[in-house]
Amino acid sequence: MTSDPTLALRVRDLAKTYGDKRAVDGLSFDVRRGELYALLGPNGAGKTTTLRIVSGLLDADGGAIDVFDVDALTDPIAAKRMIAWLPDEPMIYDKLTVWEYLEFVAGLWGIDAKTAATRAEDLLKLLGLWDNRNDRCESFSRGMKQKAVLAGAMIHEPKLLMLDEPLTGLDAAASRFVKDLLRRKVDEGAAVILTTHILEVAERMADRIGIIKDGRLLIEGSLAELQARAGAAGQSLEDVFLSLIGDDGGAAPGDNPAIEAAK
């Protein structure tokens, strides 16, 4: 693929099949540096599969992925150095303290001890976990665990942050905090991709939105672009989303007038 210095992620013709089901079916999209991209779609649309392939957790059956001009399929280690992946369930070691957890994650990414200690302290203070640094994660609430995982994701200062349903189970304060933190990362020049079923979050936070279904991209653009292309000016993202994928009973994109209009 040709090099584009403004791009953080370029996905082309990505394909993944589970048995007879095509989970990702020729998906192509770009995410720019300093951009928050919301990947939306109904359950089983292929969002998580796509992000897991980009993260190097799943092998693609076909297609190409560039992460900051690094071919992620041929050199996954180099790509992984720039990526942080947060699944929807906070994956954490209950028997480690949050400090030990960050030390471990920093070790995995090969961060030197001094830098790791400085970043761990900064992150824990930022996330309000500094006083809990020597507490085992088993004593944490879900929100605290989510923050701990977020700290782990940021300790190697990723340039591409991918989050699967990052706000699930968080209270209002923690949710606001995570949103602010993601926005800050974007302002610093990182690219953030998130999946969410809370469409208001995507509506408020995302610079661009991509809607996929059956592993294919139906439409993408800013909220205004989506509204205009779907013929739903002034309507909410939820209305746009539902008009595209909501009541068609699983019809193919070519059968949906809203999608045809959007195109």
Binding site: S55, L57, M91, D94
Partner: peptide
């Protein structure tokens, strides 16, 4: 407990 974390490490 964190298979995605260790699998996504470089």
């Amino acid at each position: 407990d964190a298979p995605d974390l260790v699998a996504s490490a470089p």
